[in-house]
Design a protein around this nucleic acid. Structure first.
Lengths: 208, 208
DNA sequence: TTTATCTTGCACATTGATGTGCAAGATAGT
DNA sequence: ACTATCTTGCACATCAATGTGCAAGATAAA
């Protein structure tokens, strides 16, 4: 009986490289080819099929791991003030820009729509909860129904992330921009939003 | 010499129907097939080629006519207060939802990127001008460079238009939502934005 | 009614991308 | 060094969508 040997190190590395390449390439072009992705990962298109049965499977993995990262990044957010909490969430999203953009992409388009939206559900819930609480406290606008405002807040964050792809933006600026847009969408004026950010050390940009 | 006869009435109607169908269908699915579009227009796929040489030509026409409509809708906007002007522009965009969405689509994606962006240039300029003026007057935030803020404002408007596709929204509400988001992005708090809208009769919703 | 104009249906060529089979070569585990 | 594991390159099958040619039929203009 031939005892199975351990998987080769380079193989697992290549698998990871493929996922990373897909993330990068899909951020550049939503219709990126398998070949494009493989080449960027330093492999041939044929080799991809040694790691993933189909293109969709690669994307599926990309999405689920991305969703996990985002979920954990956001789950650790906690703060009494719901508005600060929203800013914190925005802040975390910035650190996951590439993942978020890919997921936003497939949440709208293609056969993985359902799964992607589902994977992002926890994020939606946290945002909606913060908005509801903020509305009750009077610190968040009440002229837009909670569910809708939650979607708009997501879009606002996404806008900032997309902007960062259009024109290069530094880490600090991007980080601040996401928070500003989210707070603005929630009904806060620009000056107050800036003050709130500067008044809370946990909202300061830290590189890693 | 055979004097050419006038084009048939149904033919020109069908041409228009094709463009309309494309607009609708592309709003539902960015990757809509020529066949899908033709069927919605009540024609066969083959008939499309009697009106447009290629798929791209159909889209090109859709975009240029759309751009013209948007341009004229926005060009008539004029108001001393730059912020009100922005709200007015937002208001006009709402009346061109479908056109705008299609154009936003092709401004990012596909071979018509360049043309689409170019066709939207006048809109961009007007927004940027209003922002610059508002910044000087102190009624618009100055913590974000004008060009970038102009893009973000466009995105904010687009967000509202997209939201209207996600969940049905009445004309009045949609109209108001676009303005609210634009004003919020420009730095205004929710209450002031609402007050501004309600205080200016030219910002009132009119069905037509 | 006559006739040019449009539409249709079908067959077919083309293109671009995905997915498979297989043999030969490269590489890491043992 | 031996060998399982990966990668490669090429050929090939498949699929969906675009674009063409052509003949027969429908429809509006004259």
């Amino acid at each position: 009986m031939p005892t199975t040997r351990a998987p080769r190190r380079d193989a697992t590395e290549n698998r990871a490289a493929l996922l990373a390449a897909a993330r990068v390439e899909l951020n550049l072009d939503a219709d990126a080819t398998l070949d494009t992705i493989a080449v960027r990962a330093g492999l041939s298109r044929r080799a991809v099929y040694g790691h993933f049965a189909t293109r969709d499977e690669l994307l599926r993995e990309l999405i689920t791991t991305g969703a996990t990262r985002v979920a954990t990044a956001v789950s650790s957010v906690d703060h009494a003030d719901p508005v600060v909490r929203l800013a914190l969430i925005a802040s975390r999203l910035w650190s996951e820009v590439e993942n978020i953009r890919v997921m936003a992409l497939f949440a709208v388009r293609g056969p993985l729509k359902g799964e992607t939206a589902e994977a992002l559900a926890p994020l939606r819930e946290r945002v909606a909860a913060a908005i509801a609480q903020g509305g009750a406290a009077g610190s968040v606008r009440r002229d837009i129904p909670v569910a809708r405002l939650a979607r708009l807040v997501e879009d606002a964050a996404l806008t900032a992330l997309t902007e960062s792809a259009r024109e290069p933006i530094s880490g600090i600026e991007g980080h601040r921009l996401v928070m500003l847009l989210v707070l603005g969408t929630v009904g806060m004026d620009a000056a107050s939003a800036a003050a709130l950010i500067d008044g809370h050390p946990e909202l300061t940009w830290t590189d890693r």
